[in-house]
């Protein structure tokens, strides 16, 4: 078995950012850009006596999904919790700009081939958001990434891939929400404010951050899938995420637009309906919402394996 084939069988959750990036695209097609040997380390961390990493915690590169160039951004949670600083943020922005220039070149030179060969962006999130050690630069990076995602709208699908241990929190939670498509595994999470901060601000009675089961059924993949906050739930393997990415790359751009959860009049209407529903149910636990959506036995769904869950779970607004 080749190294790439071995990667396919690996747990996405257990893999490093680089393994995820290499495994998400076709065998042998990955080229890392601004990789570790370029040594773009954070200029801020050494001042604070904090350990540095040669890639500043973000792997960027390009590969192929069939005929589609796939621009990959992959965050590494084990380095300072995947927090986004100046260099890592700039690498994210640069990768998104590359996607745009590839698209524009294709559009200009070979417009007939756009559907078949347009690029796709895969962002594998593993982060709590801004790196506090370099907060201003990190925040700025968040804004620039959002900007770039808007520039790619209707042109290049931007896909959030969330299957990591830390998941996607803080400012990057907003960024994920702004992408076209979200793919998750049940072992990963998306949220804005992290569980510990909610507990600190609202009290343990409101949210017990040490209760991981509670944290996961509030922010985890299964909940996001039922609530329509993520489009696809896949098993925890690199191959499963890759298969989903291939399927998304093949979709026409208007179908991609339909997968968006925010950012259009119809999406806003759906959100308002959800707000009204939540007000009516006044849930004290995610399970209350699952029930209101038509899932008779939420606990059983929580414990169900992937196949059973997919067969049984009823969703709020199944996206196209």
């Amino acid at each position: 078995m080749s190294k790439w084939q071995t990667l396919q069988t690996r747990s996405f959750l257990e893999s490093t950012a680089r393994q995820r990036a290499q495994g998400l695209v076709d065998e042998g097609s990955f080229t890392e850009l601004v990789g570790p040997t370029e040594r773009f380390i954070s200029p801020h961390l050494p001042e604070l006596g904090e350990a540095v990493e040669f890639d500043d915690g973000v792997v960027t590169g390009i590969g192929l999904l069939g005929k589609h160039p796939a621009i990959v951004i992959s965050q590494e949670g084990r380095f300072i919790g995947g927090a986004v600083g100046e260099v890592g943020g700039a690498k994210m922005v640069g990768a998104l700009k590359l996607a745009q220039s590839i698209y524009e070149k294709l559009q200009a030179e070979n417009p007939a081939e756009v559907q078949a060969r347009r690029p796709i962006v895969l962002i594998s999130f593993e982060t709590g958001g801004v790196r506090l050690h370099e907060a201003n630069a990190g925040l700025l990076a968040h804004a620039e990434v959002m900007d770039q995602i808007q520039n790619l709208r209707h042109k290049v699908p931007v896909v959030s891939v969330v299957g990591s241990k830390i998941g996607c929190f803080g400012g990057m939670g907003f960024v994920a929400a702004a992408t076209d498509v979200i793919v998750m595994s049940e072992f990963s999470r998306i949220g804005l404010t992290g569980p510990e901060v909610i507990e600190q601000e609202m009290g343990r009675a409101e949210f017990d951050a040490s209760d991981r089961a509670l944290v996961f059924r509030t922010t985890g993949g299964k909940h996001k899938y039922i609530m329509g906050d993520c489009n696809y739930l896949v098993p925890d393997s690199i191959a499963a995420f890759r298969q989903q990415a291939i399927a998304i790359a093949a979709l026409p751009m208007d179908a991609i637009e339909n997968l968006r959860r925010i950012g259009s009049r119809s999406a806003i209407e759906r959100q308002m309906q959800l707000v009204a529903m939540a007000a009516e149910v006044s849930p004290t636990d995610a399970k209350d919402m699952w029930k209101a959506i038509g899932n008779e036995n939420p606990q059983q769904l929580i414990d169900a394996n992937y196949t059973d869950f997919m067969a049984q779970a009823k969703r709020l607004t199944p996206a196209a």
Binding site: T16, A17, G35, P36, T37, P46, A51, V52, E53, F54, E76, R78, F79
Partner: peptide, 28 residues
């Protein structure tokens, strides 16, 4: 290149360089 700079962990780059047969190591 190998490794991730997690807590209690490290990364290393080993690269060719003409050093007259010697090897040098830098640790940060």
């Amino acid at each position: 290149h190998f490794g991730v700079v997690g807590s209690g962990d490290m990364e290393v780059i080993i690269e060719n360089k003409d050093l007259g047969g010697k090897a040098v190591a830098t640790v940060v």
